[in-house]
Nucleic acid binder design. Structure first.
Lengths: 123, 123
DNA sequence: AATAGCTAGATACAGTGTGTATCATTACAT
DNA sequence: ATGTAATGATACACACTGTATCTAGCTATT
């Protein structure tokens, strides 16, 4: 059902962290973290968001609702700009433009980018 | 901190549902739903995912996170646009939109939003 | 092989948080 | 005013969580 345990394990090991160190960073006990990984306990919203923030993934990813851990950080403009040399298509795939919790379709995002370029070229 | 309560209220009212009917659809008691909306209780992951699925939004959105990859997209885009709850200005501030290395001016962003709305309203 | 050190899984229990029934309150129409 | 629908608030039994602690596996060193 839920894959949050496997996701946390994967993220933790990918970053070469022990349960001990990660738990410390999250401000919880190692035992609690172990429980989350082994699906014996469910972290509360505060904790799951700390985990998401720590690994810079979405909560939906942690919950196994999406396979894409990438995300747009609203205040991380630099990261966004770093990827602007990609094609429109890649930009769209890399970042999900979201308004009010719901994403733009790929078509809309493409139109958006083309629209801004057209506007600018007029000046 | 968490805005899940307001999000649920907003989604529920947008869809003209009472606590009673929504709670029924989610398989929980009305009292529980009321608690979630008033931030007296935290739904477990199973329930919050039911809510996300029901309204076709992400869990990240429900939690009031500003990041949001891989949305569950709703085909009814027009309905979505009709119910944008943020002002244009808030949308602009929220996204820090950048194209071709240049941040969108407020004017550009407004044009974009108007553009998307116009596009969507045609469907 | 034995030991030590590190890491993670399992368990028990006190304490906290949750779901629900129930009551109170508000809003609104008649 | 009265009735009705909807929501907010409260109390309590119960379930779940966080943590300490114990156990076990693994690796390196001697």
């Amino acid at each position: 059902m839920s894959s949050i345990g496997l996701r946390i394990i994967s993220l933790r090991e990918r970053n070469h962290l022990t349960q001990e160190t990660l738990a410390g960073s999250l401000g919880i006990s190692r035992a609690s973290l172990s429980h989350y990984e082994k699906l014996r306990r469910e972290p509360d919203f505060n904790t799951i968001q700390k985990i998401a923030d720590y690994f810079k993934v979405s909560v939906d990813y942690l919950l196994g609702r999406t396979t894409n851990p990438n995300m747009v950080l609203d205040d991380n403009v630099k990261d966004f700009v770093d990827h602007l040399e990609l094609s429109d298509r890649n930009i769209i795939e890399k970042f999900s433009l979201v308004i009010d919790g719901r994403g733009l379709s790929e078509e809309e995002a493409k139109s958006f980018i083309a629209f801004v370029r057209a506007e600018r070229s007029m000046k």
